[in-house]
Design a protein around this nucleic acid. Structure first.
Lengths: 351, 351
DNA sequence: TTGTACGCGTTATCAC
DNA sequence: GTGATAACGCGTACAA
């Protein structure tokens, strides 16, 4: 018959992996059937108090930890949410992922993390492996994905949330804001300060489509105003403070009478700020500076940085909400599936 | 595309989960047995080229994605590595996690992320759920854990790597450096610059034991030198730029003739720098400043920041190496299980 | 309320 | 090299 009908407590050193305490062990010790334990675990109120007591005690004395792998197989949907961001080093996404992780953890959901590094092929590969975990949901960054990615996701039937961008039609659900509008806000603000020679400096815009959209939204609005010039300058590398310094210098060379700058990111703005200081350029008297992100130094630097806050934690919260309601409740319909978290321009000293 | 003429197309409103293409489907289409497909997937060289061809084609025409949940159950060890850090918002850990994710992804391992928020109980809960995934390895931050956490981990037999700290005996393997030594380096550097009224300013040190150890290492070394005074000042909140400004002010109040400061973190150093600028204090003439972390602004700020680089990406790489070798090769023995990534003091203008 | 039986999709051990 | 077959640990109708 079966080899393990006899209780073989310990000593199986064949395998070094020993998730030995199973639900059945708990059931035996509590003198109930495994299914009662299973039921107790999911709906404690559905079993008799007496049995519940016994089971609870058995669990704690055995140190039982449910095997989510087996559970996921049986339930055909595991308690994982796969999150794919360009890079977790980016403070924006770190904030969102952090919030998301906390919110999901309260419901017993785990976060599976992947980095696309702004590559659609990378993303596709990540989505593929993500799906092989039969995740409870998949969270993607932005709306630009390979057609294969969309197909995979749609075919899987898994709830999908695209975050940090709104505009085109999402695969399933979306939480974010319009990047062109962010650019437009920056432009309007600079125009309202009577700046006439404008530039948008950004990094990695050949890959970071959202930054590119902020740039084009900026340029479009600026050019509709009364200005002398408006340029967009890109640094192909990562968005760092140093890139900001480089970009400021390029802007100074290229643009005569430069007096207004929007940055794709507060880090770049900080670099520009430092470079201005080095060159004896006064902010905002000579040049006004608008950032993006409201990172934690933005309020404290000198001068403090006018910036646009995208609310990365709010995005995280809303994504979590969508996921949760789409898991146990019904999936939201229509407009409820697209959430605009907006953006806020915070005026400080740099303008 | 077409080719999807299976039995029940879609539109089944009942269940939305449909991981329909299984290994058996592939086997049927390739006219081999499921076992052969499984074998091919794990050791392609072990099946005949002819069969391999057929299987490969079947896989791509069906768009088969292996179900890792089922695989994990059968193999009793899933292809996930659980990583638990205090917070992913912290640039240090973001860097490590990012590196780790990339390295592990090349071997088909996924990252399951959790935040302990510097709480041992939180960490314990995370470890518990992590283990329920039968992970290939668990990565923890630091060496301080609840005894229950250690017990769980040891009993599980899963490879464990503790990172970002060295000193006490690790549960299994460890990659990091000595925090007291970092503090000592900062102190020696300040002493070598003839600073005599020293202070260590840090945030959240009641929870962040590593920062606290840097502080005590600093104090110990400083007090062994010829100094007038040495204080440690803590801000209970998070380590932000703003906290740095607050801390600088507290230090100025408390310490007469203050002329040397070490910070638990570059963000705090930056805040201190800004505050000095606001108060007309010249760095390094009036006060010398040493940071920790070498964050990306540290080289660019004004004055550039002398700091200590802990090499978060190197830690990530080494952790990955340990995990991989401990998965397919044998587990390293003895000293090879503890890797000191050291620290480097980078002297810049702020001292 | 509780127990029985079966299946989830894969891996691993053998015979062939 | 290849293919039956038995687990893997749990969810879930159903039956009791």
């Amino acid at each position: 018959m079966d080899a393990d009908s006899s209780l073989q407590p310990r000593g199986t050193r064949k395998r070094r992996k020993m998730q030995r305490v199973t639900m059945m062990d708990v059931a035996k010790l509590a003198a109930v059937s495994p299914s009662t334990v299973s039921l107790y675990l999911r709906k404690p109120a559905a079993v008799s108090p007496a049995a519940g007591q016994e089971i609870a005690r058995a669990i704690s004395t055995l140190g039982y930890v449910p095997n989510l792998v087996a559970g996921g197989l049986a339930a055909a949907s595991s308690k994982v949410v796969s999150i794919i961001v360009p890079s977790i080093r980016n403070a924006f996404f770190a904030e969102t992922v952090s919030t998301l992780q906390s919110e999901l953890a309260t419901e017993g959901l785990q976060v599976l993390l992947g980095h696309s590094e702004y590559g659609e092929d990378q993303e596709e590969a990540l989505v593929r492996t993500a799906l092989s975990w039969a995740p409870a949901a998949v969270v993607l960054t932005g709306l630009s994905h390979s057609t294969e990615t969309r197909k995979l996701l749609q075919a899987s039937g898994v709830p999908v949330v695209e975050m940090w961008e709104l505009g085109a039609r999402p695969i399933d659900m979306a939480v974010g804001f319009s990047h062109p509008q962010v650019g437009a806000s920056a432009a309007r603000h600079l125009l309202s300060k009577n700046r006439r020679s404008l530039t948008f400096i950004g990094a990695r815009m050949q890959e970071d489509h959202r930054a590119a959209k902020r740039a084009s939204g900026f340029a479009e609005t600026a050019r509709a105003g009364e200005i002398l010039s408006c340029e967009v300058i890109n640094h192909p590398g990562a968005a760092t403070v140093e890139a900001g310094s480089l970009l400021l210098n390029r802007a100074l060379q290229q643009i005569p009478k430069l007096d207004g700058i929007a940055c794709s990111n507060d880090l770049i703005a900080l670099g520009a700020l430092f470079e201005c200081q080095r060159q004896g350029i006064t902010v905002p008297d000579d040049i006004a500076l608008v950032g993006f992100g409201d990172l934690d130094f933005s309020a404290s630097c000198i001068p403090s940085l006018t910036t646009i806050r995208p609310s990365g934690d709010l995005i995280g919260k809303e994504v979590a909400r969508l996921i949760l309601s789409s898991i146990h409740g019904e999936r939201p319909e229509g407009d409820a599936r697209i959430i605009d978290t907006g953006h806020v321009l915070i005026e400080r000293r740099s303008t």
